[in-house]
Each structure stands twice: as structure tokens, then as C-alpha cells.
Simulated assay, not measured.
Amino acid sequence: MGTFAGFFYRQLTIKPKPLAADVRLDGKTAIVTGANVGLGLEAAKELAAHGLARLILAVRAVAKGEAAREQILAQTPGVDVQVWEVDHESFASLDAFGRRASGLDRLDIVILNAGVKNVDYVASKTGHEAHVQVNHLGTALLSVHMLAPLDRTAKALGTPGRLTIVSSENHFWAKFKERHAPHMLAELDAYRECFKGLDKMNIERYSTSKLLNVLWTRELSDRAAKLQLDVVINTVNPGFCASSLHRTDPQATTAVNLIAWTSAQGGHCIADAAALHGEVRGAYISEQKVKNPSSFVLSPAGKQTQLKLWKETVDLLAKEAPAVDALQRLNSV
């Protein structure tokens, strides 16, 4: 994986398949972020169709979430579909969502799918660059919040919880020069050259944020295992799909028309990762199979960067985000 020739070949020859009819999720509760449109909505629809008792759509715009709810209920009338507001550009909103989720009587599946892709520099409401805030920091904070209710349900029912973080094959192509800086997250916030020239064409910052997703997933999984949390934590590449993610990238239009999978096919990949592959933890799943992430991720330099990312993220969240007890516990191992 990771070569452009291989990417084009897979996009043109592989057609992701929906979950088999015998995959049952009866009685389970799932949360899907970014679920009002695109891949998140399609994954939510698919999970609901396999017997979920309760489905929580985590969205920034409640009205759009309600519209998505109606689509799901039209397809699967029996499921309890709830719309919960969460803003990935607000640590307070993320914390409130996490505390609300912790109060659920049951939580079996969480898919962290919300993300942005910009071709120009955009500062989030927190002051962090948008990819850093939404794709990494917001996802990281929610992932920590989700562990306790997932583990509690897993231990009560004897079935591992499932936490799936949506990444991308783009992580193979990230240059991530900022990792050499003394404080790489601060450098990502400040460095704007990646939005110019060839780096802009290659959407370098988006690719880097997807690399951060893979590194965070691996470190979070390792630490959860040391604490004996019964949660399968994996990351998934949903493929290059026609979705609203590309709305700010006019250069993607030609590629979308030529080789993109449908949003439904991307949703198949996400649903597959969340419902199957329970035998692996900290894994990268692509084309509905467990595969190796980039050679950098697997290298000693990748492991060093993974640990550095963990430390910087924990330190930043400790200063800027409301206190998360689970984060301190994870940081102790």
C-alpha cells in the first residue's frame, strides 16, 4: 500500500461490500460522529439495519442530524435514533458530550468519523489549525471519554467494546516535517507553507492529520491494553469516496468523477471495521482487511513520534480542555 499506482488500482478494481446479513448487532448501542452526511451517515444506516437497539448521531448541526435521523428511520423504523450535539472546535462541547455518553446504561460501538479537509489555512475557534483541532485533538479527547462506558459495558456483558477511528490512506503520503520541531503540535498550528505549491496540491496537512489518527490509535490501544480495558481500538481507511469532505478541494473533482467509491461503499468499510476484526487491536484496516500502516508508522522513528504525539496531546489537553480523569490514568502506564 501507499503507492499512487496501487491506490488507483484498488479504487478501480475493489468494490467494498456491505456487512453480511448474519452479522447481528441486536440490543447494542452505537455512537457515530459526523453522522449527518456522507460516510458517517452511510455507516450509521448500515449498523442500524443490523439490529442496533439505539443509535446516537453525534453532529454539530442538530437540524441536519434530525434530517439524517429521518433517513435512518425510513430504512429501519425499529431503532431508537437520537441526535446529540457536539462541536469538535469546542473542548467544552466535547467534554459535555463525553460526560453524557458516560451516563449511558450501555455503549457497545463508537465510530469517530468527524473530520475536515481544507486546502487553505483555517483557524478553529480554539485557535488551533482546523485539521489539528478537529481531526486530531477533538478525536483524541472523545476517544478517551468513550473508553470508560465501552469498557463498563464490555465487562458487564462479556463482549469487547469497539472504538473505531476513521483515518485514510493519505497517511502514507504525509511528509510531516513538523515532527522534528521541539513542539510539533505548536509547529503544525503555526506552519502554513503546506497550504502552498505542491504541498497544497497533495493536501499535506490533511494527510498529516490522518497520520496523527493512526499514531494516536496505536498508542491509545497499547495503553488501554495495559489497563486491561476490554475495548478493541482500531483505525480504518474508508477509501477515496464521493462525499462532502471534498467540498473545499476543487482539485479533487476530477478524481472523484473518475475513481471515487460511493459514500455507501465508504460506509461499508467503516461498518466492517466497527463490527468485525475483533481479533486485532491497534490495527489499520483498509479494503475491509487488516493491513500494515505506512512504513514510517512501523519504524523506530514512527514509534518515537507516536510517543511524542501522546505526550504533547496529553499536555495540551490538560491545559486547555476540561479535566478527564481517564486521560491521567492512561498517561500513568
Rank of each mutant, 00 (worst) to 15 (best):
3 T>W: 04
51 G>E: 02
197 G>H: 05
132 V>F: 15
254 T>L: 14
98 G>V: 01
196 K>D: 12
32 V>F: 00
119 V>K: 13
112 L>N: 15
102 S>M: 13
125 K>P: 09
205 R>P: 02
230 D>W: 11
142 L>R: 02
180 H>R: 14
26 D>Y: 07
3 T>C: 10
270 I>H: 05
260 A>Y: 01
110 V>W: 04
324 V>P: 05
332 S>I: 06
39 L>E: 01
168 S>T: 04
164 T>L: 11
265 Q>F: 01
262 T>W: 06
34 G>C: 11
56 I>Q: 04
212 L>R: 07
12 L>R: 03
206 Y>K: 04
209 S>Q: 06
231 V>Q: 04
241 C>A: 14
209 S>Y: 02
33 T>K: 05
83 V>Y: 05
109 I>Y: 06
248 T>Y: 15
30 A>P: 00
284 Y>T: 03
297 V>E: 05
156 A>T: 11
114 A>F: 09
76 T>K: 08
185 L>P: 00
55 L>N: 04
79 V>G: 01
113 N>G: 00
311 K>A: 14
31 I>R: 02
224 A>M: 10
227 L>A: 13
38 G>S: 01
170 N>K: 13
243 S>G: 08
27 G>W: 03
96 A>G: 10
127 G>D: 06
69 R>K: 15
302 G>R: 09
320 E>G: 10
194 C>W: 14
217 T>F: 00
50 H>D: 02
153 T>Q: 08
28 K>N: 03
314 V>F: 05
5 A>P: 04
205 R>A: 01
255 A>S: 14
95 D>H: 15
31 I>S: 00
86 V>G: 02
65 G>E: 02
178 E>P: 07
26 D>Q: 12
136 H>N: 10
216 W>K: 07
174 A>Y: 02
52 L>T: 02
301 A>E: 14
310 W>D: 05
61 A>D: 14
40 G>W: 08
87 D>R: 09
14 I>E: 01
253 T>Y: 13
175 K>Y: 13
250 P>W: 05
154 A>P: 02
283 A>E: 02
244 S>D: 15
233 I>H: 05
159 T>S: 14
79 V>E: 01
176 F>P: 02
306 Q>S: 12
215 L>Y: 01
39 L>N: 03
53 A>T: 11
205 R>G: 03
48 A>K: 01
40 G>D: 05
122 V>S: 00
152 R>Y: 04
70 E>W: 11
20 A>H: 13
158 G>D: 07
249 D>E: 12
33 T>N: 08
99 R>K: 15
329 R>V: 11
321 A>E: 07
185 L>H: 05
51 G>F: 03
29 T>H: 10
264 A>C: 12
277 H>P: 00
279 E>G: 12
289 K>L: 12
90 S>C: 10
177 K>Q: 13
307 L>E: 14
297 V>Y: 06
266 G>K: 00
